[in-house]
Design a binder for these strands. Sequence first.
DNA 1: GGGCGGATTACCT
DNA 2: GGTAATCCGCCCA
Length: 206
Amino acid sequence: MKILPASFYQRTDVVAIAKELLGKILITDFDGLLTTGRIVETEAYNGVTDKASHAFAGRRTRRTEVMFGSGGTAYVYLCYGLHHMLNVVTNAKEIPHAVLIRAVEPLSGIETMLKRTEKKIFDSSLAKGPGNVGKAFGIRVAHSGQMLDTSHIRIGDDGFRLPDEDVISTKRIGVDYAAEDALLPYRFLVRGNKYVSGNKTQNTGS
DNA sequence: GGGCGGATTACCT
DNA sequence: GGTAATCCGCCCA
């Protein structure tokens, strides 16, 4: 497993990075508990010109400060007071681009994820949706600002290559307040993957 | 200092 | 389809 270097994140095209993150491996190892999974859904947030971004028009607060740091750090924020959402900061210092990790296909550490999410059985909902990704992987706002190549949160490349025709782009979820920017095709997902969000069917039995 | 709402989710009818 | 859970940031005073 090759861990993605900071240079992967410090490129200028956040939309391309969001697409390239599909198929990569999210790894956390908090308290000696290793959890890994394949990223199957992402969204790009294009900084100060993107009405859907927390950093739109240069809005800079303690919460969003890490987005203004160098690419390759984790930006974690609390949504609705209870969901810890994992983002990857991209581009150079002072350019607040980010990619939201919206869904992950669990690979290892399933038992740990079940404990963290208080679920009884492993089904496609385990790390489906950004709130569940944070919960299953044990990510909290306290981890915001950590480097992704050296900390307890990392993203790796196991050599898997997702064919281009298996990548679908759509408009982003839950950003209707962003007017015309809500229509931008900045959400990327793996075609036919059951761990992708926006699909209410879960465990259909057999 | 007060009020409002969100890059969500799960469970209700 | 509707709404509770739950808290921080932001806006306005």
